[in-house]
Simulated assay, not measured.
Amino acid sequence: MTATLMESGSVVERAGVARPSFAAVLRAEWLKLRSVRSTWWTLVATFVLGAGLTTLICWGNADWLASPEADESPGSFITWGMMIAQITAVVLGALVVTTEYGTGMIRTTFAAVPSRGRVLAAKSVVVAVLLAVVGTVTAFVGYAGGNFFLDREGIGMPLEGDVLRSMFGSGLYLAGIGLFTVAVGFLVRHTAGTISSVLALMLILGNMVNLIPGAFGEWVTKLMPGNAGSGVSTPVSFNPDLLDPWVGFAVFGLEVAVLLAAAYVVVRRRDA
Rank of each mutant, 00 (worst) to 15 (best):
S115N: 15
N61S: 06
V96I: 12
R116F: 08
P114G: 11
G75W: 01
T88N: 11
E69Q: 15
G93W: 03
T79N: 13
V97Q: 03
R116A: 05
S73T: 09
L95K: 04
I87C: 06
L92I: 13
S67A: 15
G81M: 05
G117W: 04
T98N: 07
Q86H: 10
D63G: 08
R118P: 08
G117Q: 10
R118F: 04
D71Y: 10
F110C: 09
L65C: 03
A121R: 08
W59Y: 14
G102N: 14
V91L: 13
G81R: 02
S115H: 15
A62M: 00
F110L: 10
A121Q: 09
Q86A: 05
M105G: 09
G75R: 03
W64P: 03
R118C: 07
D71E: 14
G81F: 02
V113M: 04
L65A: 03
S115G: 08
P114S: 07
S115V: 13
L92M: 07
L95H: 02
G60L: 11
G102M: 08
S73I: 03
T98H: 05
T109K: 03
N61K: 13
I78K: 02
R107W: 06
V96C: 07
V96R: 00
C58V: 07
F110K: 06
L120G: 00
V119Y: 02
A111T: 12
